[in-house]
Design a protein around this nucleic acid. Structure first.
Lengths: 328, 328
DNA sequence: CTGAAAGCGCTTACAG
DNA sequence: CTGAAAGCGCTTACAG
């Protein structure tokens, strides 16, 4: 049978409240402390967390709301969050939304109901429902991956990354460029990266640039790239994510063209595969795992009521590999 | 302020027990039911799950203990588990062990303490501690990915997969074969696949086969493959996972050799990238997501006390792509 | 069909 | 330094 605080108290010949105090670091005499040490070790007593939470009205749970499990960026961030949270004495509770926006909202409420101490939301998009839910639950919420003035957030240097890639392809002598982006609903990936890129290109005085839009999937990118190859003589395809770059590379290969001799390709993210495929992919390194750790630290500081900077920007950097041809 | 069952009872002019009965599908008159419908909708009342669990001593939580977040197989299975569990009215609670065996054991105990209704353990290895913990917590536990007579389990057709690959490379005319496996501590991946492969090869009367061992990582496989290339003239490298195949392909490319012209490569798993890389990888398709759904159904049936078959085997099949040269 | 009462396993003032 | 008591928000026999 499961042992409870009453059992322990009885065995030690003290009151439940004394045991509780012992457990929570309160005042207990040395002798009863010793006695309790032994009894608790012997019985392997573990407090019932439901009873604790019911009474204390708080937990050490931190919810992580994620759009999907099978995303490189998400899983890497989750590792960072999980590891850091564990060190800080918190536990992660992962809620997957399968990319359904309404499920993000539901999860905010249900995590609040489960008395989560805080929430890290890996968001693709912030809507008014998000803001409403956040106000209603009145819980520390940290948005990761997107910026929003209503929330504390952690973002990557997307604009700078786009700028760096733009400068790089220009430096390599490319003057006919194709940019394969994503929906502008995703501000970080769809807007910031593109804007940074555009800025660099304009500074370089390059005019021959066309913009396309793809879904986030490899297959979607494959389809888009296939049609671009047929109609556009660009010498480099700048892709808004590594996944898009992968689909694009596949399409180029399937057309019997060579990378980077015929067409150059770049990505954003630096997934593991970027260094494995042939040719290896020139891309921007996004330190997802580290960022997850930073997010964990930030939410914990928010929970502890510290005065936390609203916006944290995680710097990224270019990794030059073999997928871009130097034309000069 | 958070509304409780007492508030609802007061507003409806009934007793708490009546509200509770209403909530749990018990007998309630039509009129009070209607009244309660409205009040609960208006107040957005949500029962406190801690109080429920404290009293009922059970939850609808099912723990999934995973070795790591950044594994293709794991994340796909998680998706399948998560989706199916949701449909069945259960919630997943993901616990990551960062590949630490002792954390698997810890998590079994802590999930029991959190009153999980059951546990799905994505295991690489079953030890006596696992068995001990399972007995101690007395909770339905399903092992996924490994077979063990002490547990209900769900496995892939690893031996058959190995056999199929063996037959396939033989059929393609390869007679000098190199098998790159993993530690035998992992019975499914390290033993079963190899045994199935060996059986096929023996049936084919091929004698020129050498066996190597790699870690699970791409980098580890790269290192192993690099040394093999220098010493072994095999025409095909049969790799025990797609990740190992990726590292191996990278090593082959780095040596200036062509796949499949100079060396052929096969994998197990059929990760997304298998179809994206160039050449695309001939491998065994493992339906991870579907298997996750099957696991979810199985654990729920176990929880419900149904008489569930101890061992479920998920069939896999060969996917022929471009990484194997036909020598005949 | 309904309500009063006890109890789940804790924590938290409060009094000593 | 310690204990008795109340209470967190539910559920569950039990009696009506």
């Amino acid at each position: 049978m499961k042992v409870t605080i009453s059992d322990i108290a009885k065995m030690a010949g003290v009151a439940k409240s004394t045991v509780s105090r012992y457990l929570n670091g309160g005042y207990v005499s040395e002798t009863t402390k010793l006695k309790l040490d032994k009894i608790i070790a012997d019985t392997k007593y573990e407090p019932n967390s439901f009873a604790q939470s019911l009474k204390a009205k708080k937990t050490n749970l931190i919810g992580a709301i994620i759009p999907r499990f099978d995303s490189y960026a998400t899983s890497r961030m989750l590792i960072g969050i999980d590891e850091s949270l564990k060190e800080l004495g918190y536990q992660i509770l992962v809620a997957n939304t399968s990319q359904k926006l309404e499920r993000e909202i539901e999860n905010i409420y249900s995590l609040a109901n489960q008395k989560a101490a805080g929430i890290i939301l890996l968001a693709k998009q912030i809507t008014k429902e998000h803001i409403e839910a956040a106000k209603a639950v009145d819980l520390p919420i940290l948005i990761a991956g997107q910026e929003d003035e209503e929330f504390h957030s952690l973002v990557y240097g997307d604009a700078q990354s786009g700028y760096d890639i733009g400068k790089y392809v220009a430096k390599c002598g490319h003057t006919n460029i194709c940019y394969i982006g994503v929906t502008e609903e995703d501000v970080a990936v769809g807007v910031k990266r593109k804007e940074g890129f555009r800025k660099a290109i304009e500074e370089e005085g390059i005019e021959n640039v066309s913009y396309y839009e793809s879904s986030f999937s490899i297959e979607g990118a494959y389809t888009v790239a296939t049609s671009i190859i047929k109609e556009n003589p660009a010498t480099v395809y700048v892709c808004a994510t590594d996944n898009i770059a992968l689909g694009t590379m596949k399409a180029i290969h399937h057309h019997g063209l060579k990378i980077p001799e015929d067409i150059s390709v770049t990505g954003f993210g630096d997934y593991d595969v970027a260094d494995i495929i042939d040719p290896s992919l020139t891309t921007i390194h996004y330190p997802y795992k580290t960022a997850g750790g930073t997010a964990a630290n930030k939410i914990v500081r928010m929970i502890q009521g510290e005065d936390v900077e609203r916006l944290t920007t995680i710097p990224c950097y270019l990794v030059e590999r073999k997928s871009v041809r130097r034309r000069k």
